[in-house]
Structure formats: structure tokens, C-alpha cells
Design a binder for these strands. Structure first.
Length: 431
RNA sequence: GGAGGGAUGGCAGAGCGGCCGAAUGCGAAGCUCUUGAAAAGCUUUGGGAUGCAAGUCCCCGGGGGUUCGAAUCCCUCUCCCUCCGCCA
């Protein structure tokens, strides 16, 4: 959540910045009014408490001195003050609940140099790597689901039988390919990120405070008999680890990676763009997250983008870096770059990683702070992005590796991890 | 799953319902002394709300209650420890 102070201290500028993200001024005005009301009520409550505390203290002294009559009189007075206090406290509680509710609906402020725009049509392609359109002409490219079924590495019918639409069964070399991809990614990122294997279910508290569970978001699966949720991304577990903590400045930056299964309900999604592995309820991903000092976050963001791109380059996959415009930014992000891999089989660019600079939006909610060397306590900045999301990268490897004889050649860098160089060819490609 | 015990500041560890945001020790920071260091002495050392400030208010695992007043009493949840059961 944003700092409600911004609304009190600098309403116009804040409203202008949020307008770029499509936030209605009404919402902000409502929040500001509530914050103002809260400020007034806090002062009233404090004054009322002070009055009561003073009398209570006097009662203690009088009782010690055996001045019973005076004590009794004071006690009656205190009881009256107490009743009064309760009333204004109730008012304050109401205001705070309403304020909280309202502020929670306000998204993070976009970075000032994020391009203006309303939808993904206004996103900006910053650079493209390894993509030559002519290289894809005049050949019979196939979508990965056709290749996968033909080679027996993908089994959509069994997946549907087990779990329904948007689930996957990978078989044989297909399973091995996924395992190889995750190992490759974990090894690539090992130099900068500490590998974590977290729990895959987390408390309501954790998923709420990472901003992945609000009343407007029904992405996550809940366990029936426990107040626990399946993580929609490893980020939830990794960011949750430091909730409520005050880190030492010297501990920063904290960089973690985790290979986890992710579950998303994806309510409403179905149809053409969900075929094959394009969109799944359950998938595997290597996630990268970072906590750092505010002054470092912009530079760290660009490092994170470069980190997320490294596996794609090693796999020789053409990709492009897209900066999301202000209107397309996710709720909690101040800046987002998407990495999109070109899929020749469906002739589309598929998002394989979304790198977000979240600033202090999550850490304020989750109370993740750090203490400056000999100085004050501040909120850390948070960043996250996929280090490698397996389904779409799996699909891209299969589509790009398709050879005229129908087999799939794996990228060189992947061969040691997958233990094979060709899927579906003659036995020579196998080791 | 069953039975018992616990949760207090960076750590350890006191705390009669009022004088306790909290003794004491350790750790850490600053200062004095010293050529320097050690030792010793002095001082400082949690978070948050509100306020220009002085101040006031809140927080002793979380939430609720009793009371004029709760770290202290009651209820509840979570976590940790010991024992029993189960189990990869």
C-alpha cells in the first residue's frame, strides 16, 4: 500500500502521478478525507486517554494514602471518562477500518519516466535480441502442443482426466526437459541469488501482505480445512520470509531464488490463448526476488532484468524487452519490464518473465524494514521477476528446436542439464 | 492427534493490578583517562501514532475481555519446549 501521508502532504502531485495509472481522483479524495478525519480523531482519543490516565494515577496515590472517600469520588469520575473514551475510540476504529479499506485499493505510484499509456497497446519495446523475421519464413513451424503430442512428451488428455483443462502432463523427455531447464536456471543465477526451497503453502497473512490476495483477486487456491493457500508464485514465500523484520543495512541487498510449483486459478481464462502450455493452473518456475535500499533499487532493477534475460540468451531464444506503460502496470509495481520470447509455432511473443520494481509498496504492508547505519528505520524496496518460467520456455525450446525430420534439437547449453541433445530423433541423439 | 510447560528490549533474564516502556547482566555506540591499546569510569542504546516543538498516546507473541487502571487476572489463537502416539 502507498503511504497515506502522501495524500495529506502532497495531494495534487500524488493524484497527478496516480492518474497516469488510471486511478480515479474520487478514490484519492475519499482516502485523503478519511486520513484527515483519522488525524483529528487520534488527537481526540489521545487527549481523552490522557485525561483518564491522570485520574487513574491519582486513584492509585489516594488508595496508597488511605484516602478512601477521595479515591471513590475520583473512581466515579474516571468511569465517566472511560465511557466517553470508549465512544470516541469506536469512532476512530471505524475511520481506520474505512481508511485501510480505501488505501488498499490505491495502486503503487508509477515511476516518473514510465511511458504514458492506457493499455498494452501503448507498451514500448526497448530492445529485441536474436530475432530475424526472415529466418522464420518459408518453413513449416508448428505449435508446441502438436510437436509435443506427436513426440509423446506432452499428454493433454491424461492431464484433463486427472485435473481438468489448463493442467499439463509432461512425459519422458518432456519431463526431463523441464527438469533440465530449472537446473540450468538455478545454476545461472547461483552467483547472485541464494537458493531457497520454501513451503508451497502459506498462511492467509503472508499471501495478503505480499499483495497477492485482496478481495479483488481470486487467483490463489485455498486449502479446505486450513487457513492456508497454495502459492501463486515463489515470490509470495520468498517475500514473506522477512515480514515484520528490521534488517541491518549491511544485510542488504538480500537476493533469493526459488524453484517452486505455482498455482493460479486463472478464473475466466480459456480458449485459444490457453492452448498447450501457454497458460496453466499449475506450473513450475524459478523466481528471483530482492530487497534493497531505496537508493539502489533503480539500478538493481536493471540488473534483475539482465539476470532474467540470461537464460534466454543461453538457450538461444529470440526475445524482446517491453516496458509496460503507466496504464498497464500491475497494481503494486512502479515499473515493469516484460521479457517476451518469440514463439514461431503460434507466431506470437509470449511473456516469459515480468520484472517488477515494487518500491516500498509491499514492504510497507508487510513491515519489512531496515535500520540505517546509526540512523533511522526505513522501508526496504522490493523487486521480483521470473528467473525462468518453465511452461512457455519449454514450449519455445520445443518450437525453435523443431527439425525438418520432426525431431527437436535442444540448445547446446541445455544438453548437459537435460542429458539428451535431440528429442524424437533416432537413438543417436540420446546419451 | 493426546498430556504438560513457556513466549518480556540485539541477547540473557527480573517483574506485588497503580510509582513499569519495563530492574539487572551481556553486547553495541559515544566520551573521559592513555603515546596507543586494554582496564576503568561516565553517557547513550526498541518500534509506532500525533504534533513546528514541548509533549501526549499506543505497543511486554497476536486478538478479545475484566478493571478507574493490565506485562501482571480471564478467554482465545499462533509459535516454541518436554513426553506419548503416528509417519516419509
Amino acid at each position: 500500500m502507498i503511504d497515506a501521508r502522501l495524500l495529506l502532504d502532497d495531494f495534487d502531485a500524488t493524484a497527478r502521478r496516480l492518474a497516469r495509472k488510471g486511478v480515479a481522483p474520487d478514490l484519492l479524495g475519499e482516502a485523503r478525507d478519511l486520513a484527515e478525519q483519522r488525524r483529528v480523531q487520534v488527537q481526540q482519543v489521545d487527549a481523552a486517554r490522557q485525561a483518564r490516565n491522570e485520574v487513574s494515577k491519582r486513584i492509585g496515590a489516594l488508595r496508597r494514602d488511605q484516602r478512601k472517600d477521595e479515591a471513590d469520588r475520583a473512581q466515579a469520575e474516571a468511569a465517566e471518562l472511560g465511557r466517553n473514551l470508549e465512544q470516541i475510540e469506536a469512532g476512530l476504529r471505524e475511520t481506520e477500518a474505512a481508511l485501510d479499506d480505501t488505501v488498499m485499493r490505491i495502486p503503487n505510484l508509477p515511476a516518473d519516466d514510465v511511458p504514458d499509456g492506457r493499455s498494452d497497446a501503448d507498451n514500448v519495446v526497448l530492445r529485441t535480441y536474436g530475432y530475424d523475421p526472415s529466418a522464420f519464413e518459408g518453413r513449416d513451424w508448428q505449435p508446441h502442443w502438436d510437436i509435443g503430442e506427436r513426440l509423446g512428451i506432452l499428454d493433454p488428455e491424461r492431464a484433463a482426466k486427472l485435473s481438468g483443462a489448463m493442467f499439463a502432463v509432461l512425459k519422458g523427455d518432456g519431463a526431463r526437459l523441464l527438469r533440465g531447464l530449472t537446473s540450468l536456471a538455478l545454476d545461472i543465477h547461483r552467483d547472485r541469488y541464494e537458493e531457497i526451497i520454501p513451503p508451497h503453502v502459506v498462511r492467509s497473512e503472508v499471501i495478503t501482505k505480499t499483495g497477492h490476495l485482496t478481495k479483488f483477486d481470486t487467483q490463489a487456491y485455498r486449502l479446505r480445512d486450513d487457513e492456508l493457500w497454495l502459492i501463486p508464485t515463489g515470490e509470495v514465500a520468498l517475500m514473506g520470509m522477512h515480514q515484520g523484520e528490521i534488517l541491518a543495512e549491511a544485510e542488504l541487498p538480500v537476493r533469493y531464488m526459488a524453484y517452486t510449483t505455482c498455482w493460479r486459478r486463472e478464473a475466466g481464462a480459456a480458449g485459444k490463448e490457453t492452448r498447450g502450455l501457454q497458460r496453466l493452473h499449475e506450473f513450475h518456475k524459478v523466481e528471483l526476488v530482492e530487497l534493497c535500499r531505496p537508493e539502489d533499487s533503480e539500478a538493481e532493477f536493471h540488473s534483475l532484468v539482465a539476470d532474467a534475460a540470461r537464460p534466454l540468451e543461453m538457450l538461444g531464444l529470440p526475445y524482446r524487452v517491453v516496458e509496460l506503460c503507466s496504464g498497464d502496470l500491475t497494481f503494486s509495481a512502479s515499473r515493469v519490464y516484460d521479457l517476451e520470447v518469440y514463439s514461431p509455432g503460434v507466431d506470437r511473443w509470449l511473456e516469459v518473465s515480468s520484472i517488477s520494481l515494487v518500491t516500498d509498496f509491499q514492504s510497507r504492508r508487510g513491515q519489512i524494514r531496515f535500520r540505517r547505519e546509526g540512523g533511522p528505520v526505513e522501508f526496504v524496496h522490493a523487486l521480483n521477476g521470473s528467473g525462468l518460467a518453465t511452461p512457455r520456455v519449454w514450449a519455445a525450446v520445443v518450437e525453435h528446436g523443431l527439425q525438418p525430420d520432426g525431431s527437436v534439437r535442444l540448445p547446446e547449453a541445455l544438453v548437459p542439464y537435460a542429458g539428451i541433445s535431440v528429442i524424437g530423433g533416432d537413438e543417436e541423439g540420446r546419451r
